[in-house]
């Protein structure tokens, strides 16, 4: 107790000074919109730097987990490669099999990217990725997590950065299908919960059930990309279609590493669609 009193005696001038100084600075900082804006910009810059450092540290400590997932992915790909090789061997030097696995038949190319910034609390959220036009990124490419979960698609890009419209954007819309019965739907975000999207225009014959998995069905992405699982479903008033609430598979709040998916045939599909529209 005696030591504590001594300590307080030693530092009380400094404490009083700091309290008075903070009060004076606060009074000055909030006295006009100019000072408020200046202080805000400074604190944002400082906050951004600190946040960036913390993210980097967090990224460093999450490396073991990422390594584990990468290893699992490598194992998965190796298995796939083995099975394809086995298929080729089994069919001898079959020209059909060779064509099937020819590089020219590869439709999708994957570009790894990292999230630079993102929002999840607005009606029109965006994600900025650290890959841009110089890396071969262009609008309309799909974006997924390394676990094959839907994130969104690229809407614009500069030389070094790309802006993604995530599923958590009220302007977002893509096709989907229920994995169990192949019934298609439209996926969109009503702007309510950041954990849920909705599937609309589900056929009355689709018989949706809770827990059913919904995948993306879009020319931007390959099959097997998960949107999420059905939580609730209702029949519309006209009893002509179901709409379902889907729990998003990707954890949008902790996105870090993503894959940008390029459909090498997208230009061809787009041209074809344009021709159909013009006819």
């Amino acid at each position: 107790m005696h030591r504590l009193i001594e300590f307080i005696k030693r530092i009380y001038v400094l404490v009083v000074f700091l309290l008075l100084e903070v009060a004076a600075l606060w009074s000055y900082a909030t006295s006009s919109s100019y000072t408020e804006a200046k202080i805000l910009s400074r604190t944002t810059a400082i906050g951004g730097t600190i946040s960036g450092t913390i993210t980097d540290i967090g990224h460093f400590f999450s490396l073991p987990e990422k390594n584990r997932r990468l290893t699992a992915r490598i194992a998965e790909l190796s298995e796939e490669l083995d099975s394809r090789e086995a298929y080729i061997l089994a069919s001898g030097i079959d020209s059909t099999a060779m064509v099937m696995y020819d590089d020219s038949e590869q439709h999708f190319r994957y570009h790894p990217a990292r999230v630079v910034s993102m929002t999840t609390n607005r009606k029109r959220n965006n994600i900025v990725l650290d890959r841009g036009a110089v890396d071969g990124i262009s609008p309309d490419m799909g974006v997924i997590t390394p676990d094959n979960e839907l994130v969104g698609y690229v809407v614009s890009c500069s030389e070094h950065y790309a802006v993604v419209m995530p599923v958590l954007n009220i302007d977002f819309s893509t096709g989907g299908r229920i994995v169990e019965n192949d019934h298609v739907c439209v996926i969109r975000w009503p702007g309510a919960s950041r954990y849920e999207v909705e599937a609309v225009e589900l056929s009355i014959y689709s018989e949706p059930k809770s827990g059913m998995e919904v995948e993306v069905r879009s020319e931007r992405l390959p099959s097997g990309i998960t949107v999420g699982t059905i939580e609730e479903y209702v029949l519309n008033n006209a009893k002509s279609a179901y709409s379902a609430t889907i729990r998003i598979a990707a954890n949008m709040a902790t996105l870090d590493n993503v894959l940008i998916v390029e459909n090498l045939h997208y230009g061809e599909i787009e041209e074809l669609m344009r021709q159909v529209d013009n006819e």
């Binding site: 008075l20 009060a23 009074s27 006295s31």
Partner: peptide, 12 residues
Amino acid sequence: GGAGLYTATLLP
């Protein structure tokens, strides 16, 4: 009309 500016710079 310093709104704290004079105080903040005099205290140090």
